[in-house]
Design a protein around this nucleic acid. Structure first.
Lengths: 228, 228
DNA sequence: TTCTGTGGGATTGTATGCAATTTTTGATCT
DNA sequence: AGATCAAAAATTGCATACAATCCCACAGAA
């Protein structure tokens, strides 16, 4: 599932394919925060002219993944600790809303799928499989986005999740984080199943808010390392 | 404060000026939802080539104001009733978070300013001054965005508010809406002053949620008219 | 040695030209 | 008259060329 973009022969309609490829590279940390994105270099690499590259960069810029400074080119956006915390706070609120809507709207099938995903989380956590846990966890949250049945909300949450994902991946590597996450998930599942929308909202908000703290720790650690 | 972009001699660095000008035109309803945005026409109107126009359109597209379909050009995005409701719901959540943070963080000066803005709202409502009320109301909410002291949150809320503003303006024209709004504002003010963050959050969410309902009514009315 | 100013190189911003796709128009057939 | 298909016109997508701006190195002076 985690397929990194192939450099050569990236086919499909150039422009949107480019955006996708670059986004993937950033999200999967092939292009790291702070990396400079040279238009000519990218043009040569993808075998297109600078025009579509520019358009792709502009697009990524307004989605927040890259930063463009006038006459100074583009670079992969590097988030400050403060920004990351702020984002998690917003994400907590938005995922809380998702959970609330799920409590109102989820079908039996969706509920079953949600439970299943958290069961997988539980298994992988027990096995100490961090990468597997990360994916199962993603699936769990993804189910909740879909279950909210609000296209706008879904899109916004996904966009936000993408932006913090680079840093987020590190968090699951923290000790005891996985088992705690699973427990929090079950609380949320129970609230949604019971149709307790206020609880669902609150539990989810707290769940994501906790990540914010961990994320801040992780980032501060990274910053300390990079300040060499 | 509400200055519409001048057509002729739009100076400043072309590209960002273009984006601003187009955005203003859309936000102030000079360019109406559904209007086609012809690249050449815009290029001629702003006396630049198609390239910067294209970039501006792409930018507006990814901020959601315009819609681009492959090989079919750009048009001002027309929101469906469903989308508008979904947006208000998210906005309610986000403004709720703002209010919560205000309850924690606002300075005395900011509190005073907030009260002042709502007093102005009250006066204009009493005077039946709809446009004036709209502006004062904007100021009130703006104060709360700033008071939250979260740049990311501020930006997101403003972006969202911009997108729904075109439709929002109609709402204050509804009978009794203004006086109710003022009362709701006072409740929020009181909660923030008291540092009751949960109340502040909830009251603000309800306040904006009510708008969602009104917005839906307005939009459905508009759609009925346009279906001729 | 350090600071400042100038020049060259590199990179971004804009203009224009050509290819590809879509839409419109008009002619023909039913 | 209405429908269908084809060709032309218009519009978008991409490539390339040129202009403007910025960065960096190097030289000269304090």
């Amino acid at each position: 599932m985690l397929k990194v973009a192939q450099d050569s022969k990236e086919s499909g309609s150039t422009s949107s394919a480019l955006i996708q490829a670059l986004e993937d590279d950033i999200l999967h940390n092939v292009l790291k925060p702070g990396d400079r994105l040279d238009e000519q270099a990218l043009a040569k690499r993808f075998e297109v002219s600078r025009t579509p590259v520019r358009e792709a960069l502009r697009h990524l810029a307004s989605s927040g993944l890259v930063e463009i400074r006038r006459n100074q080119g583009a670079m992969v956006r590097r988030l400050t600790t403060t920004e990351l915390i702020e984002m998690f706070q917003v994400m907590a609120e938005l995922e809380g809303l998702c959970a609330r809507l799920c409590a109102r709207r989820m079908s039996e099938e969706e509920l079953a799928e949600m439970r299943k995903h958290n069961t997988v989380c539980e298994e992988r956590a027990a096995a100490g499989d961090h990468d597997g846990f990360f994916d199962a966890n993603t699936d769990f949250h993804e189910t909740i986005y879909t279950g909210a049945r609000s296209t706008y909300l879904q899109d916004e949450v996904r966009k936000l999740r993408n932006r913090v994902n680079v840093y987020r991946r590190h968090i699951t590597f923290q000790p005891r984080r996985m088992t705690r996450t699973v427990a929090e998930h079950w609380k949320i599942v129970k609230a949604i199943e019971a149709g307790e929308e206020d609880d669902a909202h609150q539990f989810m908000r707290e769940h994501v808010d906790l990540l914010a703290g961990s994320a801040a720790d992780v980032l501060l650690t990274l910053e300390a390392k990079n300040s060499s």
